[in-house]
Design a protein around this nucleic acid. Structure first.
Lengths: 231, 231
DNA sequence: CGTTGGGTTGATCCAACTCAAACGACGTGG
DNA sequence: CCACGTCGTTTGAGTTGGATCAACCCAACG
């Protein structure tokens, strides 16, 4: 498969990039395809590459020593991931990247990215925007985990995921995620997620299916996320 | 009070900065002093300034709608804070900055910082290092909150705080924080913190006093943080 | 059509939060 | 220097949200 360099303008960090830079990136990088459930890299690997996702979906997960894991982020097409490793020459990935479905991504050598950053202000700004977004999101999620009860956290998680990777189809937003994924993204368990989603489905807020959630009434979720308790 | 520009080299982000830049920063910025418990800024304020802490200690806190708050970071002398606001021209502070003791900080206009970033690669790199550090720490803390029990989280929190703001005195490390601060930093309550610290004090791991914790046996804390449960 | 893996549901349990009360270190003013 | 009020800390008792465990259901797929 070939990548059209011009497509890279859809990457947030590269919106301002001149075509010659995009050509350079495509030319100097390789396209890596991984099958479903396989990994682009593991937590602790040397951060040799940054990636731009070309097809499929990828999740970034972090595990504790006991193997329990949390979902830190889900990556969609034309998103850059693992860019942090490009900053420090000797860094290791603080997370693992696992394909949610058959995927392919452009693997850019961290050293190339570092070189380019020396002379391209747009790259610095783009990466900083990306990073500040991450920081703010993680701070919010941390606070939510520390202060909010699960139902509210679940609503917040689903709304956040919807804005990040939701797929619009006939006016409705669909999340192609299993309840396991939701549990790991919200800091809960599949049991509690299942019970809560069933309850919401009864109330007509959402519709659930194997590996997907359809939002029927986003406003109702917002109310749960920030409003008063349900009776 | 006067700031000696050369002192700014102690700021991580400005380690590589030439003296003329430091002079410029001091000259164009103002020194703000705030008394204990007062705020440099509140969550949601327009991010007009970035700060470098000159004296005292400051904590960054985030509150939820109900007013419960979490401690995201404690700032010590010569640390830069609120630098994220400098990235986007129209940003607001996502956290509040409250003085833990009488403090003073150099208030640098965000716009000045942005201008300087255009032509000073060291600044970009410094800020990116800072940001990647934040991201990784927040990701870790998020995972800890999601997967670890309080005792372990408390140990991790105290070890982390010790490395960030611990004060070495006669071979021991002291944390000048109240149990309220520890609770807000670890995502727990003062009651659980008090009980746990009392238990640790009985075991000789630490020593507690009003508003301070002395680490007697850091290795023991590390064991709790990553080891098996205590009998 | 059998197997697999996501989802559901009920029963149980416990870690940690909540609430209430008292304690004790510290600073202040008389 | 003592009395007092404040505020951080401690401790006990009671409660509970949500995790855990076990069993089952059912849709998808080879």
């Amino acid at each position: 498969m070939k990548i059209n360099p011009a497509d890279l303008n859809q990457v947030n960090v590269l919106k301002e990039a001149p075509l010659e830079d995009l050509n350079l990136l495509v030319e100097k990088s390789i396209l890596r395809s991984v099958e479903e459930d396989s990994f682009y890299f593991f937590q602790g690997d040397p951060a040799k590459y940054a990636y731009i996702l070309v097809t499929g979906r990828v999740k970034l997960v972090q595990s504790n020593p006991a193997g329990q894991q949390v979902n830190l982020r889900t990556i969609k097409q034309w998103e850059m991931f693992a860019a942090l490793g490009a900053i420090r020459p000797d860094a290791t990935y603080p997370v693992a990247a696992q394909a949610l479905e058959p995927s392919s991504a452009l693997a850019i050598e961290s050293s190339l990215l570092r070189e380019m950053m020396q002379t391209r202000p747009y790259l610095n700004f783009g990466l900083m925007q990306l990073m500040t977004g991450y920081i703010q999101e993680m701070q919010e999620r941390y606070r939510e985990l520390a202060t909010e009860k699960v139902e509210r956290r679940l609503a917040l998680t689903i709304l956040r995921l919807a804005s990040q990777i939701g797929i619009k189809s006939q006016g409705q937003i669909e999340l192609p995620l299993s309840q396991q994924d939701i549990a790991e993204a919200s800091g809960s368990t599949i049991y509690t997620v299942s019970r809560t989603l069933s309850e919401w489905e009864k109330r007509g807020l959402i519709e659930t299916g194997r590996g997907r959630i359809v939002m029927r009434n986003p406003h109702g979720l917002v109310e749960i996320a920030e409003g008063a308790e349900s009776a």
